[in-house]
Design a binder for these strands. Structure first.
Length: 278
DNA sequence: GCTGCATGATGAA
DNA sequence: TCATCCTGCAGCA
């Protein structure tokens, strides 16, 4: 039976990589509506900021990489970054469920609560500009310039797997997509970034665009070609079956049967198929 | 009830 | 490379 937050027991929560952030921007704008927004911080940690924007309208909600910017009238912007644990919940009707950890509540047509974010702050124009400057192109931004990404990789000696998690090279990719994208383009995560050919770098960009768009539409990370796994709908697959390599170490590759390996890169696990990716 | 781990990112050493 | 912050879950006693 689904739990009160709508998740299925045993399933991991939605991963806050870039696709989820863009999806939040789109869906929250629709569910909050265009009226005045009640803003509060039940937990108290954002009380001062909430008081500033309480009662104002939201003009737009923008996402860039894993960052969200709520543009309130009067030139105030609320900046949220979910980090590893942050979660939003939306309550379409009835009162929002508040806990001792609810950092932020926004109430318009619907109520939205935020728990556990790394960042929840008001941000000024200058600081926002600085932040945007240090982010690389976002595959979900239609105006993004892929040559910035291609050129950035040419300057990096670190493994391509590490470079993909560097938000100043490419904004919005997290640990799941890094493993999956590199598998799909058949590139070993351990290869130095600058040794990749221009075609290989561009292939990574294009694969990122395709996979993040797919994730933004569905709200879940599904990177397998359904034909590869004998499914007709992604929703038929348990979460771990929706990907090729992420957290599948020790299991057979779904394309070639070699054993998926896991290695540590900058303190985090990377998964790859030693046969498909080289 | 505790411990460790996870999708992230920063700042110190 | 490590400690740190934020939360919730699985696994174990």
């Amino acid at each position: 039976m689904p739990r009160r937050d709508g998740r299925i027991p045993g399933e991991l929560p939605p991963v806050p990589e870039g696709h989820v952030i863009h999806r939040h921007a789109r869906l929250q704008a629709a569910s909050l509506g265009g009226g005045p927004i009640e803003v509060s911080s039940p937990q108290g940690r954002f009380a001062a900021g909430a008081a500033v924007i309480d009662g104002r309208r939201i003009e737009a909600i923008d996402a860039l990489g894993k960052h969200l910017f709520y543009r309130f009238e009067g030139d105030e912007a609320l900046h949220v970054h979910l980090g590893l644990f942050g979660r939003f919940r939306t309550f379409k009707k009835g009162p929002a469920e508040l806990t001792a950890n609810t950092r932020l509540m926004l109430r318009g047509d619907a109520a939205i609560t935020l728990i556990g974010p790394t960042v929840c702050e008001l941000i000024g124009e200058t600081d926002e500009a600085k932040l945007r400057d240090r982010l690389g192109p976002d595959p979900l931004d239609p105006s993004a310039d892929p040559t910035r990404f291609v050129e950035a990789l040419g300057r990096r000696t670190v493994p391509i797997g590490a470079a993909l998690l560097d938000q100043s090279a490419l904004a919005g990719i997290g640990n799941v997509y890094r493993a999956e994208i590199l598998f799909r383009v058949r590139i070993d995560p351990h290869r130095p970034a600058r040794e990749l050919s221009g075609e290989e770098r561009m292939a990574i960009w294009e694969e990122s665009v395709e996979q993040l768009r797919r994730g933004e539409r569905s709200g879940r990370i599904v990177t397998v070609d359904l034909a590869d796994v004998g499914a007709t709908r992604a929703s038929d697959l348990p979460r771990r079956e929706r990907v090729y390599v992420y957290r599948r170490a020790g299991r057979p590759c779904r394309r070639c049967d070699a054993t998926i390996v896991s290695t540590r890169m900058a303190g985090r696990s990377v998964f790859s198929c030693p046969a498909c990716q080289h």
